Amino acid sequence: MTTTDGTDTKRADLPLTVRDPDCGPSIETHAIGTEAAGVVASTLKALAEPLRLRMLSFLATAPGGEACVCDLAELTDVSQPTVSHHLKVLRDVGVLASERRGTWVWYRITPGYKAAISTLLESFAPAALDALGPHPHLTGLEDADGALDRLARELTMAHSDLGADVILRTVRESYTALARSAKVSAHLLTLTERFALQRLADLTRDASRGDSTGGAEHAGPPQVLFVCVANAGRSQLAAALVRHYAGDRVVVRSAGSTPAADVHPAVRPELAALGADEPFPKPLTDDAVRAADVVITMGCGDVCPILPGKRYEDWLVGDPALASPAGVAAIRDELDTHVRALLVDLLPDLGLPTP
């Protein structure tokens, strides 16, 4: 090295203990400890996944700082087991806490991580957040405002007991929920009307049940709700089979924890053979669960609600999504056996042979 007077000095001539007087304390004094570094690295590794960051962003901005697992599942098109895996990863490192409260499993960011998550989202991704613009789930809603208002006014005439505000909210929520997975919006308003009508009927049924003397059960026909992940195969087939056998003697609904954009093509011929109306995937709602007497689940994980006093069954039936035509037919036959057993129990006078 060269000294200030221009002479060369070999490094070996300098004492090893000499340090720049302006240099601060040794690195070892201020460096993060090995154990702490390991904990931080594990947490950052858990965060380094796009879907998990979206979940955290959703929770950080949610009213009350919490959301149910059904809301988190709607952020993505992946399967329910995959959603559960990501949530478990965030729970395992302590970023999220979960609690089954009444109907759903609810998630929130743990207090110790709230400030850190806010800093992460606001400091590392401001450009990306600004580029998002309007909430993507509401894309197209601005152009449909007038149509939704007109639909709400029409439905208010038939459901005035629920109140105009409830009906308008139900219509808008139904539109938004269907728009999340819709690939083509040409028939979205028509589907919104069908979905909203179902939801309003469920709200009316639940209200009349709650008003019954002594909490007696609703006097109308039994109501069955079929729930799977995508509402594109199994639950649609099961609902169609119930309608085929029982007609209007059973009110039947189907829903998905993460509804697909459309019904599986291989399932459509089976539904047509059963006389099903034009089917479309629908999201799972609280009002459908509350109005149901029987809830049948088929692989939808922990997003399926648990309400006291409800009859629950879980049918282990294959998913027709990737099945061959012969496989879909086998799944239909298996569902047929389950459905006939259910109807023999619900409507003994229906005259169906015991499976």
Rank of each mutant, 00 (worst) to 15 (best):
A326K: 08
S254G: 03
P265Q: 02
A260T: 02
P265I: 05
I306N: 12
D277I: 04
P281I: 10
A291L: 09
R340F: 04
L322W: 04
A323C: 08
R253S: 05
C304A: 15
T337I: 05
K282P: 11
D333Y: 09
E270G: 04
P305N: 08
A341R: 02
L346T: 13
P269Q: 08
G327I: 03
S324N: 02
A272L: 06
S257R: 07
D293H: 12
D248S: 03
P269C: 06
A326Y: 00
E334L: 10
P281L: 11
S257V: 15
T258G: 15
S257T: 15
V317Q: 04
R253K: 08
I306P: 09
V250R: 00
L322S: 14
D287G: 05
R249G: 08
A255F: 00
T258I: 13
V295Y: 09
D262N: 13
S257G: 10
V250T: 01
A330N: 12
D286G: 05
R311N: 02
V252D: 07
D333N: 12
P305M: 07
L343S: 09
C304T: 05
P279M: 01
L346D: 14
L316N: 14
A276C: 12
A326S: 14
A288Q: 15
V317N: 02
V250W: 00
R340N: 05
D336W: 10
A255H: 03
G247V: 12
T297S: 13
L346R: 05
L322N: 11
D336E: 12
D286Q: 12
C300R: 13
P320H: 07
P269L: 02
A288G: 14
V289L: 02
G275W: 04
L342T: 09
V295K: 10
D286T: 14
H338Y: 09
P279R: 02
L343M: 08
K282H: 03
V295H: 15
I306G: 13
A323Y: 06
G247T: 06
A272Y: 06
A323D: 15
R332L: 15
A292N: 14
G275D: 10
V289N: 03
P269G: 04
L284T: 03
A261N: 01
V252E: 03
P283A: 11
L343P: 09
V303D: 14
L342Q: 10
A323F: 08
V294R: 15
L274S: 00
S257W: 01
E334Y: 06
I296F: 10
V267E: 14
A326L: 13
A261W: 00
L271G: 08
P259E: 04
A321S: 15
P279G: 03
K282D: 08
D293L: 04
T337Q: 14
G327N: 00
D319N: 00
A292I: 01
V251W: 12
C304E: 03
E278W: 04
L343A: 11
D319R: 01
L284P: 00
R311K: 06
V294L: 15
D345A: 07
V267C: 07
L322C: 10
D262W: 01
